[in-house]
Simulated assay, not measured.
Amino acid sequence: MVVKPFTVDLDKPLVFQVGHLGEAYNEWVHQPIVSKEGPRFFANDYLELLTRTAWWVIPLVWLPVASWLVSMSFRMGLTLAQVPLAVVGGIFIWTLLEYGLHRFPLHMKSTSYWHPMDGMRIVFPPAVTAILCVPFWNMSRLLSPPSVAPALFGGTLLGYVAYDVTHYYLHHGKPYKRLTQDLKKYHLNHHFRNHSKGFGITSSFWDNVFRTVPSTKTAEKMSNQ
């Protein structure tokens, strides 16, 4: 008896369907979902609401938090020259976190219930981000002096905001400048041609360091489309 492969029904909540895909999940999750309103994750309206976040919520919530953290370091004794250095250090740390999170947890192979990809849910809900912030805040406190830790972590949050807003724009915006056009081609190449390369979103710096830059031939194909 031939068993037909499981097909996801986009008119029904996705989360408890994708586990039935088995080995086919990793191929399905990198396919674009064409839907006017975006498919539901959960049947429960309250759970569904928690999965949807407008892009502008990210800077609205986190920029004031980052500013408060930076001001805290200043109040704790950092000079006007030292504060920017700590912030830049935090942004640099974020670029590595961005690469690592995108390369490993967000590309974890799964044959069970995991997160389906949906273009309407590009940015992280603030509640999820707040939970993820806890270990990184503790790490900042552990690895830096008390007066430096807030500005360092504030810089990390600024890097995160830049990442989430950029990620949304690359999926839903229409870049008209060369830099943003190149970023979009680089990222879409990662999603739809070679998702084992090109993990950087805001830059390809760590892709160059860890040799995960897509081949030139693949990039040329994307640029000609």
Rank of each mutant, 00 (worst) to 15 (best):
I131K: 01
P126A: 02
P145C: 04
H171Q: 08
L157D: 03
I131N: 03
S140M: 12
I131D: 07
P126Y: 02
V148C: 03
L142G: 09
P125I: 11
P145G: 10
A151R: 10
Y168F: 11
H172Q: 10
P145T: 15
T156Y: 13
G154K: 08
L142H: 11
N138Y: 15
S147Y: 08
I122R: 10
M139N: 06
V148D: 11
Y169W: 12
M139I: 11
M120A: 14
F136Y: 13
D164H: 04
S144I: 05
V161S: 04
V148M: 11
R141H: 11
Y168G: 00
S144T: 15
A151S: 14
L157Q: 04
P145Q: 12
L142K: 07
L143H: 06
L142E: 13
H171L: 02
I122D: 14
N138C: 15
L142V: 07
L158K: 06
L152R: 08
L143I: 12
N138S: 15
Y168M: 00
L143T: 12
H167D: 01
L170N: 00
S144A: 14
W137F: 07
L142W: 13
L152Y: 12
H172V: 04
Y163P: 06
R141G: 11
L132W: 11
L152F: 13
H167Q: 01
Y160C: 05
A127D: 10
V161H: 03
V123L: 10
C133H: 11
G159V: 00
H172S: 08
A130C: 09
P150H: 04
P150K: 02
T129M: 11
Y168W: 14
T129P: 05
P150C: 03
M139D: 07
A127G: 11
S140D: 10
A127F: 13
C133Y: 07
L152A: 03
Y168R: 00
Y169I: 05
A162W: 07
